Every structure is written in C-alpha cells, then in structure tokens.
Amino acid sequence: MLIAVIAGCEVGFWVVLAAGLATRYLLRMRGTGAALLLGVPLVDLVLLAATTIDLHDGGTAGFAHGFAAACLGYSVAFGHSTVRWADERFAHRFAGGPPPRGKPEHGAARARYEWREFGKAALATALACGFLLIMIAWVDDADRTEALHGWLSRLGVVLAVWSIWPITYTLWPAKPKAPSPPAEHGP
C-alpha cells in the first residue's frame, strides 16, 4: 500500500507543479499559481504522514519505508531548484520569459555547479538518514526496523557515486569546444 502512496505522491508533485505553473502563466492568475506552488511541499507531508501512520499502526518497516525517507530527503533538498527549473522553462515557453539558464558547459563554472549539486545531494542524504533514524528510534523495535538500517548504507553509496561528477569536473575540467573550420566549397 505504501508503494502506491509513494507513486501517488511522486505523480502528485508533478501535477501540483504543472497546475501551479499553468495557473500562473496560462491563466495569468499569479497569486493563485503561487498558492498552488506552495502546495508542492504538502505532497511531501502526505508521504511523511502515510509512512508514519503505517509504522504507528504496527507495520514492519520494509523497502517502501526506506524509499519514502529517501524520496522525502531528495524532495526537500532538490524541490526548490526543481520548481525554479520548471518555472524558467514554463515562463519562457508560455509567457515570453527569457531563455532558461542552462548549466555551465566547462571550466571552473561547471565544477562549481557540480559541487553545488553535490551539496544538495549531501543535504538530501543527511535528511533521508535523519528521517530513517527518527523512524528507527520512534518504533524502538529492532525487528520491525531492520530494513531501515540497510537504507543508511544505500544512501551513502548513492552519495559516493554522486561525488564522481564534481571530482571529475574539478580534476579534469571540460574545455570549450574549438570552433569548426569552415566547410570548403568546390569550384
């Protein structure tokens, strides 16, 4: 059942985001659109409540509970930038806004960008691990929370893999592409 709630919340996140942006830009109702966008984090609260209620009612923590904690951590850490990313594209496409900012292509700017994204991933991992530890302490039953302990190391592995990008861009920064030589035209 919890997997269905997680899937519903993931879909709900994008539905609420799209509704907020459509209301803001297509219907030109900026205040209502902003209010809908403030509802995006409420989807996370639904997921948190469902997970908590399931454990409170005597459920044994399983894969879904750990996954819910991971989803919450990543949603909180990346939520604002995801909304900003979507807003820039929607404004450009439907409201004549400026072209969206892309990520830097090369050099120190790209390395800084990758480290900033890694910082968000580290925050997401810390939040998810915090949610897991709170669930473990709250249930206070090692048999019922055994599956959550495995998630602590899983999240650590994900963060370690994520660290490859900023390290790579720092040690071997991408260089600007050389302009192509003009094509030769025959006689």
Rank of each mutant, 00 (worst) to 15 (best):
I134S: 15
A137N: 15
Y113N: 10
A137E: 15
R116C: 00
L152W: 07
C129F: 07
D140C: 10
L133S: 11
E88F: 08
H92Y: 15
D140H: 03
G102N: 03
G156F: 04
S81F: 14
A77G: 04
R89I: 03
G73K: 04
H149K: 02
G73Q: 03
V157K: 02
W85A: 12
A95T: 06
Y74I: 02
H106V: 04
R101W: 05
W162F: 12
L152P: 01
P98I: 09
D141T: 13
F118A: 02
P166G: 05
R110V: 07
A122T: 01
G79I: 04
E105C: 09
V83A: 09
G102T: 09
R101L: 11
L123G: 04
I167A: 12
P99S: 12
V157Q: 07
A77W: 08
G79P: 10
S81Y: 14
G107T: 11
W138Q: 12
R89V: 00
P99T: 10
G130T: 04
H149G: 00
S153I: 14
P98Q: 10
E105Y: 05
H80L: 06
R110Y: 07
A122I: 00
E88I: 10
L133V: 13
Y113V: 05
P98E: 12
R116Y: 08
S81W: 14
A126Q: 08
P104M: 08
V83K: 14
E88A: 15
P104T: 10
P100H: 05
R112M: 08
E105P: 08
P104G: 10
A109Q: 12
H106Q: 02
R110G: 09
G130N: 06
F131P: 02
A128M: 13
S75A: 13
M135P: 10
P100M: 03
W85E: 08
E88T: 06
I164R: 14
G150R: 03
A124W: 01
C129S: 13
V83C: 12
L127K: 04
R144M: 06
R112N: 11
A111Y: 00
G150C: 04
A142F: 13
R84Y: 12
F131N: 03
G73S: 03
A86K: 11
F90R: 02
G150F: 07
F131Y: 13
S81K: 15
K103G: 02
W162N: 08
A124C: 12
R154Y: 10
A137R: 15
F94D: 09
A137H: 14
A86L: 05
L127V: 11
Y74V: 05
